[in-house]
C-alpha cells in the first residue's frame, strides 16, 4: 500500500518532467532516486514535501535517503 502510494508520487513528478511513468515492476528496492530515476535536487525536494503531506513523515529528517528501500524504512514499511 505504502509502495503504491510512493510510486504514485514519484510518477506524478516524472509526468511533470515529461518523462515516462515507471511501472511497479521497474522500481526495485535498490533503485536510486538520483542515479536510476534521474531525480535532481528540485525533484527530491518536491518528493519529500509530497511524502510529508501524504504520510506526515519528513524522510530526510535523520539524514539523506536515496533508495526506495530507504524511503520505505523511514515510512515504517521495510518491504
Amino acid at each position: 500500500m505504502v509502495f503504491e502510494k510512493l510510486l504514485r508520487i514519484i510518477n506524478s513528478i516524472m509526468k511533470k518532467k515529461g518523462e515516462q511513468e515507471l511501472s511497479a515492476h521497474y522500481l526495485t528496492e535498490n533503485s536510486s532516486l538520483r542515479n536510476d530515476i534521474g531525480f535532481d535536487s528540485l525533484d527530491l525536494a518536491e518528493l519529500t514535501v509530497r511524502i510529508e503531506d501524504e504520510f506526515g513523515i519528513d524522510i530526510f529528517e535523520h539524514g539523506n535517503v536515496d533508495t526506495i528501500s530507504e524511503i520505505l524504512k523511514r515510512l515504517g514499511e521495510n518491504e
Binding site: S41, L42, L44, A45, E46, T48, V49, E52, D58, F60, E61
Partner: peptide, 12 residues
Amino acid sequence: GRSNRVTGNIVV
C-alpha cells in the same frame, strides 16, 4: 516557500 531539507525551500 515550503521548507524542506533538500533545497531549503520549494515554490508552492
